[in-house]
Structure formats: C-alpha cells, structure tokens
Nucleic acid binder design. Sequence first.
DNA 1: CCGACAACCTGACGGC
DNA 2: TGCCGTCAGGTTGTCG
Length: 270
Amino acid sequence: MPELPEVETTVRGLRTVLEGQELTEVTPRRPDLRRAIPPDLRQRLTGATVIGLRRRAKYGLIDTDRGDTLIFHLGMSGRWRIDPGEIGRHDHLLLKTGAGHVLALNDPRRFGSLDLVDSDEIAAFASFMALGPEPLGPEFKASYLADALNGRLAPIKALLLDQRVVAGLGNIYVCEALNLAKIHPGTAGGKIARTKLGTLVKAIRAVLGAAIEAGGSTLRDYARPDGELGYFSKQWRVYGREGEHCPCGGTVNRRADGGRSTFFCPKCQR
DNA sequence: CCGACAACCTGACGGC
DNA sequence: TGCCGTCAGGTTGTCG
C-alpha cells in the first residue's frame, strides 16, 4: 500500500485536477471493495464541486460543496489513474470533471474502501475514531510516545504498525525508521529509553519526509496519479534487501513477525 | 493486553 | 510454455 507518503503524494496529485472542479459524472463500477460502497454515492456526488482534498493517516479525503466528504483507502494495491486510456476491470470508480479529466480508482485486490460521510462529522467516522496522531504532526513527539508505549511489552515493530499508536506507518517505513534509529524490531516498546524514543521520532519523520519528497515509493503496482512512478524505493536502507549491506556495513536480515516480513540489521539495530 | 493466524482478492514471480 | 506454490504496501476479527 500505499503507506502515508504514497497517499500524501496521491492527494497532492489529485488536488491538481480535482480542486475547484465539478464532478460531472460519477460511476461506481461495482457495489463493493473490501466492504460495500455507499449505494447513494453517485447520486450524492454527481454535480457537486470539489472544494478541497486532505489526508488523514492512510486515507484520502475529498470534500465537496454539498457538505459530503468522499473518503478513500487504497488498501494494498489501490491507486488513482488520471485520464487512463482504457477503462480496465479493476477501475472501480470513475470521476469525470468539468474540465474533462477522468479519474479512475484502480484496485486489483480490492482491499481498499470508499465511504461518503458528512464533512462535519469526520471525527465520528468509525475508521477514524481510534487513530493515533499524525507522525508528521506536532503531537507526535518523544513524550507522547513514552506515554503510549509505557508498560507495553509488545515488539516496537508491532506497536508502530498499530494505527492507534501512530497513524500512517506501514511495513516498509516501520522497517526503515527502526533501522535509521538503530532499534531492533523485537525490542519491547516500553523498554526503549526516552532519549532513544526521541531518536525514533526523528527517524520516522525523516523517513516519511524523504519519501514524500521523492514522490512516494513504488513497489509493484503503485504509481502517482499522473502515471509516473515514485522512486523512493531506490533509497530503501533495509526493506526488500535481505542479504545486502546495511549502511553500517552489516548484513540485512529478514524474519517473519505475525506473518509479515521484517527487514533489519542485527549489527546496528539492538 | 498479547501474539499468532486467517480472511478478504488478484497478480507477479520463481522453480520445475 | 505452463502449472503450482509463495509472496505482496492493510485492516479486521478470532482464538488461546
């Protein structure tokens, strides 16, 4: 998935073609993704004007002048295509703008979601209720993390993937941030020294910031809305690099945690 | 509260 | 060339 940087990049890309535009045609092409798509989505969005786009965690928000907000999640394989030549079987929602652009939400695995909520009640949206702070926001600092991790014996990797602790990190950037901060992924969250938590906060910010700057990373099927691929993957320190050298000179190891691959360097991460 | 696991779904890739 | 097993960025729920 698209983790936070990819969603941020997507939102920025969509903003250039959607902001201020009327949605002249809205076409859901199937009734569900991971869960049902609101049945009245077409009716509520057709003719509305997009007044802004935002991101919360890994969700993209499209606000309209009718007081509705379309909330999308890209799951593992979702992406928006701008002016796709042909509509394929995985293009599940089509939006046409007053300027004549076509946007297609493409998601082969359909782990993504589409919701339409009252713009004034975003905070009450079920998926947002338990979300932790934005990792790039002012709330996310060593003191917050110390409180959130206090007494927790779970591995720091699992805790950082928990969207209730901090919202927006996924498997790639957790691996990257822990390597940058030189923390072993299996370390109990509550046992990390306060100064180390400060280092971790900075590492998370640095990794996410660099990825956004690079335009989002790419794995198999991620693409920017304009079709260009991101290139942050070239900068990955450990993710997907089993057997290669860590910047410290050690060798990148891979192990499974809860069914997901963890990449880390046993030499500098402890 | 915790960890492990399964489920959701399709496509890409490596091995034979 | 083709078949088969494995793996993939997430979220949600169950079970022990």
